[in-house]
Amino acid sequence: MSGKTILYVEDNEFNLKMVRQLLARTAYQLIEATDGEMGVATALNEVPDLILMDIQLPKMSGLDATRRLRADPKTAAIPIIVITSFALSGDDQKAKDAGATAYMAKPYSPRELLQMIRNLLPEQ
């Protein structure tokens, strides 16, 4: 399998399961992390092609993790989609400021999320 890898950092098992099932029928490879620190460590180890980062995470927030990854040359160029809690609350601006490539408001439509991933990272 030489599919492109996507790291999803998310602490809610149902959301993880949903994205897992969403990507199961695509060529993308999914790797998972369940807190901010683990997300940063996994990203530095695995160097995925794209990162989905939830904004609220245990141990380290999604915004802090994004800033850490942007600061590291190994991960600085990886596209990061930050999953914000609510588009109108100003989280989108905070996500952009932290270095997010794009943001997606939660609750997101799986269809729209997949579209956004495909735009940033062509499947083939």
Partner: peptide, 22 residues
């Protein structure tokens, strides 16, 4: 905020069902 997380799963799974992913 806490409500939004399960809502994400509910709406997401339903949409995926209606999109016939399953």
């Amino acid at each position: 905020h806490e409500l939004r997380t399960p809502m994400n799963a509910i709406l997401g799974f339903v949409e995926m069902m209606l999109d016939e992913i399953y």
